[in-house]
């Protein structure tokens, strides 16, 4: 039995009387896409924040590659191999596409304390960045300012930055957000291949994408996981249908 790449064990987080995460245990295995779905306010974002280290759980553990990272800050978790994308693109809008990805490469290489040589002429940084851009298909717009990109291109760039880290696991917060039907379809195809590079913990509202992509699905309702299973199992689960899927499924 192989160790999961990313795992939470009994994560609990309370904000006053509100329990945002209650005893959440889930794992992400090599080569899979594990989707987390749930209605608005189910605590998906809070869970992601805890996995990535921007929030710290009151109880429970986050483990990455078999090591306990619960006490690590976000930057340390990124260095340990967690590649994250945001629901709302977090990109340096004044900078070019290439500069944004080189930032990721710089984080991966871990040597930001260099004050003289040009960052974009550093072969190691540049190779990493260009490989990531090639993989998401943004090479043509590498010199464009991020502010001039289309929404869809920004979503791709968001993935490219995470990719440039060569992470052990991806955590993606609604990568389809705001994409049209065409864009969603392309992103779905891309993510499907990406799971071979590193497994993906995917939070997504777009059910078509989730059902097309996920190897396993966990359903989060009021901060608790009410079911985990394959697409077929989740579609057939009565509790899930009552709580969430309703007429859709």
């Amino acid at each position: 039995m192989t160790e999961p790449v990313l795992e939470t064990r009994g994560i609990t987080k309370r904000f006053g009387a509100l329990t945002a995460s209650e005893d959440v245990s889930l794992d992400l295995k090599a080569g899979e896409i594990h989707a987390i779905i749930g209605p608005n306010g189910a605590g998906k974002s809070t869970l992601i924040q805890q996995i990535c280290g921007l929030l710290h759980p009151d109880a429970g553990q986050v483990r990455l590659g078999g090591a306990d990272v619960t006490r690590m800050a976000a930057a340390a978790r990124a260095r340990a191999g967690l590649g994250r994308t945001f629901q709302v693109s977090q990109l340096a809008m004044e900078d070019t596409v290439l500069q944004n990805v080189v930032l990721g490469a710089l984080g991966a290489v871990g040597r930001p304390w260099r004050f003289f040589g040009a960052a974009l002429r550093d072969a190691e940084l540049r190779d990493r960045a260009e490989a990531a851009l090639a993989q998401v298909g943004l090479c043509d717009v590498a010199a464009m300012r991020c502010a001039d990109l289309s929404h869809g291109q920004r979503r791709q760039l968001e993935v490219a930055v995470a990719l440039s880290l060569s992470p052990r696991a991806f955590v993606m917060d609604e990568p389809m957000a705001g994409l049209g039907a065409e864009g969603s379809k392309r992103m779905t195809g891309f993510l499907s291949e990406l799971r071979g590079t590193a497994p993906i913990l995917l939070v997504e509202h777009d059910m078509d994408a989730v059902f097309a992509l996920a190897d396993r699905i966990s359903v989060l309702v009021y901060g608790r996981i009410i079911a985990t299973g394959t697409v077929a199992e989740i579609r057939a689960d009565r509790a899930v249908r009552d709580a969430y899927l309703g007429e859709e499924a």
Partner: peptide, 8 residues
């Protein structure tokens, strides 16, 4: 926040 999530 982006800088932090690339490990810097």
């Amino acid at each position: 926040v982006r800088v932090e999530t690339v490990g810097l």
